[in-house]
Nucleic acid binder design. Structure first.
Lengths: 156, 156
DNA sequence: CAATTTTAGTATGAATTATTGACTATATTG
DNA sequence: CAATATAGTCAATAATTCATACTAAAATTG
């Protein structure tokens, strides 16, 4: 048994989380830039990622809530993405207050590039850490998220 | 064996990382606000956290690099923290180009509050997920960070 | 069915945050 | 000493986010 502490033992978890997330962020942004999508705004990565999974159209409200952003910031973010050709807006015919957002062709292409970059990191991570540890990672992150969710309803 | 997929199976890792990090961010910010430290800027949490660990004085350059921020943004961030009474700046006598930053009393107090909030989350996480899984979490996050570090030196 | 309340989103203006480009001062190297 | 690199600042600007106030559509209520 080694008595050496690994470098990451002395770093607090929030900092580790931040840097780990940066690995994905940088890789996705780099891939997008290489492919000519160099005008995706900050949180745009999350929107594109969510859209790609969420199927055809996603209510704006879902985006707002999942990003923990104010309505205004989310609206402006979508605005920007519409202006730059990644998204289209439409009114939900069911409830005409609601907006629904869909990916344009450009948006789909960008989301694909982004998804491939993310997959490369995922694959590399599994190769290094093993599928089991990655599964534990996901599960434990989910626990952490659960703690945060509960705290939100308990503003004490 | 259940065939149900857990909710977090369908969420991409960067989003999980972001939300997990938000658990810490919200808890720390809430604790700081409760204690009267309601003017810590966004990245200030990382600075205070790093300072509390890093011992007495921390070179500004370290902060810059560890935050992936431009020199200007980091300088401005430190500026703000100095103005608000959390930090003090001093010139490194060894190399007079260099700035070294230390916590004021107020800064130390805030860092303590923040650290306690972080510890509460850590403790709760260990209670729920178990120490082993948390250890795996840390190790796997470190792998992820390693992937990012390597990619930086390989801009292809 | 009118009156009220709730929900979804926008508009405007301000504050915060981050970046670009040019610059100063100090240190290092040949 | 000249040339170059490093650490950080300054000023102007761009990007992002938020607060407050608002409009329009739906849901609720009497």
């Amino acid at each position: 048994m080694s008595e050496k502490r690994a470098w990451y033992e002395d770093i607090v978890l929030p900092a580790l989380l931040r840097h780990a997330r940066t690995t994905y962020g940088s890789a996705m942004r780099f891939a997008l830039e290489q492919a000519g999508y160099d005008d995706v705004p900050r949180n745009g990565l999350y929107v594109l990622g969510a859209m790609a999974l969420g199927g055809e159209d996603v209510p704006l409200g879902d985006i707002i809530r999942s990003l923990h952003l104010s309505k205004q910031a989310a609206g402006q973010l979508v605005d920007t993405l519409v202006m730059r050709g990644y998204l289209e807006r439409a009114v939900d015919p069911e409830d005409r207050r609601r907006l629904v957002v869909t990916l344009t062709e450009r948006g789909k292409a960008a989301a694909t590039v982004q998804g491939e970059a993310r997959d490369r990191i995922d694959t590399e991570l599994i190769a290094r850490a093993g599928a089991d540890d990655v599964a534990v990672l996901r599960r434990t992150l989910a626990q952490l998220i659960g703690i945060g969710r509960e705290a939100q309803n308990d503003p004490q």
